[in-house]
Design a binder for these strands. Structure first.
Lengths: 205, 205
DNA sequence: TAGATAAGTAATCATTCGATTACAACACTG
DNA sequence: CAGTGTTGTAATCGAATGATTACTTATCTA
């Protein structure tokens, strides 16, 4: 026993700070993705991660540094997925393979949405810098590593921004009830639509 | 904390509430576009509009209703620009004309960015509803009024989301110093780039 | 096993912010 | 010009939130 204080559910087990940090980062990605940077509280992140609010703050210093860490991690995951997809040998054209890899990331709810929130905060000195660098990193990857022309890379990114927007809009919520939403979704994301419906719901902002 | 001394800056002139409302709405569009919904305070809007903070709140009821009004206005302006552009008789293909009309709107700093901020807040019950409806309104316009196929409309919107993102990123700030940023901008927005540079700057988040 | 180090929390503080209230003055109508 | 509705503000409140402090307790090592 030896459990003590008011609140129950005492795990009493400790974790290495690295693991805990990764866990908090994932939780933060989800919350930031749903509510945006300013709309997210450190307490919401803490609750999602199952730790206390002061711990979240102390672990990353400030809320802004936490968000920057989320952005960096999201870009790392994205680039890793792209590089993996590029390295694959397959009959499918590279462009399509990358598109599928990107669509796969959409299932990780907050990941691309956290990035998207960062992208529209370019006026913030720190966040804007990180966001621009990340965006250009992807652009360069598409050109240099994949071998796309500027126009091809731009179009690929445009398609990605469209997918991000549709997810951010939660357009999938209207799939069953709104024929327009359905048509748009099936046009914009022909494959992989199934991934977004089902585990997509829950949580009302 | 907006103004300064006790009785200063006395304009002494009244305004019809309609004018004042429109003025506040424009100011709010600018601030929301730059800082997002949650990142904007009603006092920032009030200062930008040159009125007091309580007045802004009372005029719209709540901050959320103010943001919803901003979204509705932005959609109205956007649709009006599209309809006007569609009605024009010109040698330029409709698709290109609409693209130019959209690019023109980018010069109104907050307008498309406020929309974009709304688009990524789909999890919010009220904002999400408005954002989805607005997005689908544009999609339907492109199909029904312009006569685009679903695929054409989707691609057009994708391009628009890309432009919004580049503006949100303030990528234009790096135009002179970063060759990648320059190339990307010139690829993604071949015309109209000039509109975004120059009056684009000012205001640090 | 003592003791240090690191993981983690409860309590709390200072600000910020949206909202409310009470009040002031301009402008129109009769 | 009296009276009234509307435009607008100053003052302020209560809740929320990021951050700090001080304190516990698990785990590792000498």
């Amino acid at each position: 026993m030896s459990s003590m204080s008011t609140t129950a559910a005492v795990p009493t087990t400790r974790m290495a700070s690295d693991e805990r940090r990764a866990l908090v980062l994932e939780a933060a990605t989800g919350v930031f993705g749903q509510r945006g940077y300013a709309g997210t509280t450190t307490d919401q992140v803490a609750t999602a991660a199952g730790v206390s609010q002061p711990y979240v703050v102390r672990m990353f210093g400030t809320k802004e540094k936490l968000f920057l860490a989320v952005l960096h991690r999201a870009l790392d995951v994205l680039m890793a997925a792209f590089r993996r997809s590029l390295a694959e040998k397959s009959a499918i054209p590279v462009h399509d393979r990358l598109g599928l890899a990107y669509a796969d990331l959409l299932t990780d709810r907050g990941l691309l949405l956290s990035l998207m929130h960062g992208f529209v905060l370019g006026s913030d000195p720190e966040i804007g810098k990180t966001a621009r660098e990340g965006f250009l990193e992807v652009y360069n990857f598409l050109k240099v590593d994949v071998g796309m022309t500027p126009a091809e890379a731009s179009d690929f990114l445009a398609h990605g921004m469209m997918l991000n927007t549709l997810v951010g809009l939660r357009m999938t919520d209207d799939y069953d009830t709104n024929p327009d939403a359905r048509e748009l979704l099936e046009t914009a994301m022909p494959t992989k639509l199934g991934l977004l419906r089902g585990p997509t719901n829950s949580e009302g902002a």
